[in-house]
Simulated scan of single mutants.
Amino acid sequence: MEENSIFYADGNDPEMIKAFHKAQETFKYFWREQSWEYRRIIPGLTISCVKVAFSEQAETGEIIVEHMWINDVSFDGDTVKGYLINEPNDLRNIQVGDYVEIPLTNISDWLFAIIPNVQKPKGLSKLFSSSSEPLPKAYGGFSIQQMRSEMSVAERKDHDNAWQLDFGDFNDILVVNHQKEEPGNLIEHPMSKNMKEKFVEFLQQNPDDIKHIDEDGLSLLHKETIAGNLTTVKVILESGADKSIQSKAGKTALDYAQQLNWEHIIPVLEN
């Protein structure tokens, strides 16, 4: 995937700026999915990346801006971190492979894709089915969808073929897997609920993990709150976690829940 020429986004376009803001508002869903991806034995995402606006002042005094993608993303509730995967067109202060840390308010898009589960035909019906596999379904991609909205049908087809992704309808951008079929997935990730028993067992076997603080000052309660996992948050609280612990940024789990607007978790941490 290259940013060069084909996928460059004009940040001066009011509609594109709206797309940037929407990406920032919904980034929590990207991080929730990515946090579970890191725990999967078998990867579920075919692509997972975040677009960032990088800038540099040229000798003429002009500010050069390029929107490029980073992957291997991590998130501490405030800062998005990862590695640049594009070769800049004009910027000289950054290069592909560089590690970057960006405030959430500075990202311009996010994207992940999942191969849809398709019921394959059985018996003789296989003879009459298509041999082609479905393209991975794209989620997010607000700036991409804004660009697609201005393309002709043929241009969109060429664009989507270049990415090898199913972007769907640019007027109906999805942010979580099976969003239409299972609306509850907007509130709670299925893995959070399905992994409850194993998570309880894990904490019973590793009770010290509840009190462990990482290099960012984040506890397990902080992390599960940031990822929007109500079920695991409840398990951690029931296991005796201290809600008053602050991160290095001076924030409690409740602060992060409010900051990211995880409405289903806020009441649990307020009690």
Rank of each mutant, 00 (worst) to 15 (best):
176 V>A: 05
85 I>P: 02
119 Q>L: 14
148 R>G: 01
73 V>Q: 03
43 P>L: 07
88 P>S: 14
141 G>P: 09
114 I>Q: 12
14 P>M: 08
123 G>L: 12
99 Y>T: 04
110 W>I: 02
54 F>Q: 02
246 Q>C: 09
27 F>T: 09
140 G>W: 00
120 K>I: 13
208 D>C: 05
40 R>Q: 15
137 K>E: 10
214 D>Y: 09
228 G>L: 03
135 L>V: 08
138 A>C: 03
242 D>K: 05
183 P>N: 07
243 K>P: 13
252 T>D: 00
20 F>N: 06
245 I>D: 12
271 N>A: 08
170 F>S: 01
26 T>W: 07
33 E>P: 01
53 A>Y: 07
95 Q>H: 07
28 K>W: 00
35 S>F: 07
149 S>V: 03
104 L>W: 04
40 R>E: 11
131 S>D: 08
137 K>S: 14
56 E>R: 02
1 M>R: 00
37 E>C: 04
28 K>S: 12
132 S>E: 15
156 R>M: 15
267 P>N: 09
160 D>C: 10
210 I>A: 06
34 Q>I: 09
21 H>Q: 15
237 L>W: 00
218 L>E: 11
16 M>E: 03
106 N>C: 12
110 W>D: 01
269 L>S: 10
248 K>G: 03
116 P>C: 03
61 G>S: 08
40 R>S: 14
83 Y>N: 13
190 P>M: 04
235 V>Q: 01
16 M>N: 05
207 P>A: 14
47 I>H: 07
26 T>P: 00
128 F>C: 10
218 L>I: 12
141 G>C: 08
62 E>I: 07
221 L>H: 04
70 I>G: 07
44 G>N: 04
36 W>C: 11
130 S>L: 12
93 N>Y: 11
181 E>H: 04
251 K>T: 12
249 A>D: 12
242 D>R: 11
260 L>Y: 05
61 G>Y: 02
65 V>W: 10
264 H>G: 06
149 S>I: 02
39 R>E: 14
157 K>V: 05
149 S>R: 13
142 F>K: 01
183 P>V: 08
145 Q>F: 01
38 Y>D: 12
111 L>K: 06
74 S>W: 02
135 L>A: 04
266 I>R: 13
124 L>H: 04
42 I>T: 11
88 P>Y: 00
67 H>G: 10
245 I>Y: 10
125 S>I: 14
183 P>W: 09
25 E>G: 02
67 H>L: 11
176 V>C: 02
217 G>R: 05
33 E>S: 12
255 D>A: 09
207 P>Q: 15
184 G>H: 05
240 G>N: 08
208 D>E: 15
53 A>K: 10
146 Q>R: 12
152 S>R: 00
164 Q>C: 06
199 F>V: 12
192 S>M: 03
34 Q>C: 13
161 N>I: 14
